[in-house]
Design a protein around this nucleic acid. Structure first.
Length: 495
RNA sequence: GGUCCUUUGGCCGAGUGGCUAGGCAAAGCUCUGCAAAAGCUUCUACAGCGGUUCGAAUCCGCUAGGGACCUCCA
């Protein structure tokens, strides 16, 4: 069964065929590290992390490139006024790399918390100024860019005469030429639709490099083209990012790269939809974003409690990546409970006996096998993680029922139980990248808890419920919940 | 204004023209020293109007609401 993915370029689902058999080149637009990442940013990184994991699961060797945008017009909020005063001592001034380092570290931390695998290459824009300049030179030499006042612009009008500018974003060039927006430096352009490859830096601009066109900094779109070309070649398989990057960012990327490399750069363009707040896109411009540190700590007016990183991951994966996903504290709470229930049942399946050889309930067995079989088909259908999770939940009452003896032990053969365990491991942990970060994984904690549980068991057997309830209540205060199971065993977990 | 998308039960969310996704919440029951879980049962929705079809949440049209991009944006 083949993986199909929705290609924004053709606006259709297409079967995925890599350029080089067995290998996949994938580029995802990374964060701009002039500020902290928010919940909205988490979506593409989780989405494409799942794609990265799934491609590897399929046996592909994947080169996953995700950039760090650390060049551009950077100002840290509240500091720009001070920083622009050049008389300040060096250490008092904003050092761009300091700012960039701070938010890069924070980003990496948040990614780790959400169990996103590291990309195989994570290039920075500042580390590839030379590559960008070489690319710009090539485009000028080819006659598709011009210098103006120390800046360099891409000639969109000329490009569109021989190429399909606007195809990806559904834009019509004539409309773009008539745009009434008044932007800085607009008079330097031949046409309003032209975009900057290199921008001259004003004296107070804190990020600046020498170039053949004067001191300046690279245009926003060129870094992705330069780094993708360098690490993935002129033409590669998958390019991902948020839908809001379709225009102008990705449209410009196509134009630049096409001129520079004589080929359209990407076979499959993938775009995730936005996370919304009350139906409105979460974003910088609307000032309705919640940073990931605020999410994890719960320190935000819209939150009633801290939101675990895994809850965010699960929340994102419960919807399809091309649909909008509406944020609310309630929705996240419901995800938290749901994930917990799924995980506990997954823990349980590992302990179910697998020695039964009969199939007592043919119908149930067939249903379970069907649910398991469908998991892969759902992933293959444009990464339908929502359906994968729905099927995993179908298994929950079955597993719990076997534990409670509600469903007879003989109902399902051991082979089915084993398969459930195996598939749940693959899909929950390896592909969806969900994990349990609670202290219950710690070997010493397990030992201590085993001891406490035994002491309590002893008390209960003597009907000393004062002691047994005290233990349970005190553990509860620490966030550990004990459950007396029907079969006399005791299970526990961290809230 | 242009281009495009969207509207699903109390809430969140999948949905390939026929076979009621799933989660959360709620109610009842079972189990249990108590509790917490868990299990069982109940809750059959697709913005409105019209059309195509044997059959429409799904296709088409119109109306209404919401949104995205056109500007930094995941």
């Amino acid at each position: 069964m083949a993986l199909t993915i929705y290609n924004s370029y053709s606006r259709k689902k297409e079967e995925f065929k890599p350029i080089t058999p067995g290998h996949v080149g994938m580029y995802v637009c990374g964060p701009t590290v002039s500020g902290e990442s928010h919940l909205g940013h988490a979506r593409p990184y989780v989405t494409f992390d799942v794609l990265f994991r799934y491609l590897q699961h399929m046996g592909y060797k994947v080169r996953y490139v995700r950039n760090i945008t650390d060049a551009g017009h950077f100002e840290e909020e509240g500091r720009e006024g001070v920083d622009k005063v050049s008389k300040k001592a060096l250490l008092e001034k904003l050092e761009p790399m300091e700012l960039v380092q701070k938010y890069t570290n924070l980003f990496h931390w948040a990614m780790h918390e959400m169990n996103c695998l590291n990309p195989t290459i994570e290039p920075t824009a500042t580390g590839h100024i030379v590559e960008q300049q070489v690319m710009i030179k090539k485009i000028i030499d080819d006659g598709y860019a011009y210098e103006s006042n120390g800046s360099v612009y891409f000639d969109v009008v000329k490009y569109s005469k021989s190429h399909d500018y606007g195809k990806l974003s559904g834009r019509i060039l004539e409309d773009l030429l008539e745009t009434t927006r008044k932007l800085e430096g607009q008079e330097e352009k031949r046409n309003l639709a032209d975009f900057a490859l290199w921008k001259a830096a004003s004296p107070e601009h804190i990020m600046r490099w020498e170039s053949p066109w004067g001191v300046g900094f690279p245009g926003w779109h060129i870094e992705c083209s330069a780094m993708a070309t360098k690490y993935l070649g002129p033409r590669f398989d998958i390019h991902g990012g948020g839908m809001d990057l379709l225009f102008p960012h990705h449209e410009s990327e196509i134009a630049q790269s096409t001129i520079c490399n004589d080929t359209p750069p990407v076979n499959y363009w993938m775009h995730n939809n936005m996370i919304t707040v009350n139906g409105r896109k979460m974003g910088k411009s609307y000032n309705n974003f919640i940073t990931l540190t605020e999410m994890f700590s719960g320190k935000h007016p819209l939150l009633t409690q801290p939101v675990a990183p895994m809850t965010i991951r699960f929340f994102i994966l419960q919807s399809h990546y091309r649909s909008t996903l509406d944020f609310s504290a309630e929705a996240l709470q419901s995800s938290e409970k749901a994930f917990k229930r799924l995980w506990e049942s997954y823990e349980l399946v590992k302990q179910l006996p697998v020695d039964n050889e009969k199939t007592g309930d043919e119908e149930l067995n067939k249903k379970v096998l069907k649910w398991l079989d469908e998991l892969e088909a759902f992933m293959n259908d444009d990464l339908n993680t929502a359906k994968v999770i729905a099927n995993l939940f179908e298994l929950v009452p079955i597993i719990n029922g076997l534990r409670d003896k509600h469903i007879a032990k003989e109902a399902l053969p051991g082979s089915t139980i084993k398969l459930m365990h195996q598939k749940m491991k693959i899909f929950i942990e390896d592909i969806l990248g969900l994990q349990n970060r609670s202290i219950s994984n710690h070997v010493i904690v397990r030992g201590i808890m085993g001891l406490i549980v035994n002491i309590r068991k002893e008390a209960r057997s003597k009907k000393d419920f004062v002691t047994s309830d005290l233990i349970r209540d005190k553990l509860n205060e620490l966030g550990i919940v004990l459950k007396d199971e029907k079969d006399g065993s005791v299970s526990w977990n961290q809230q």
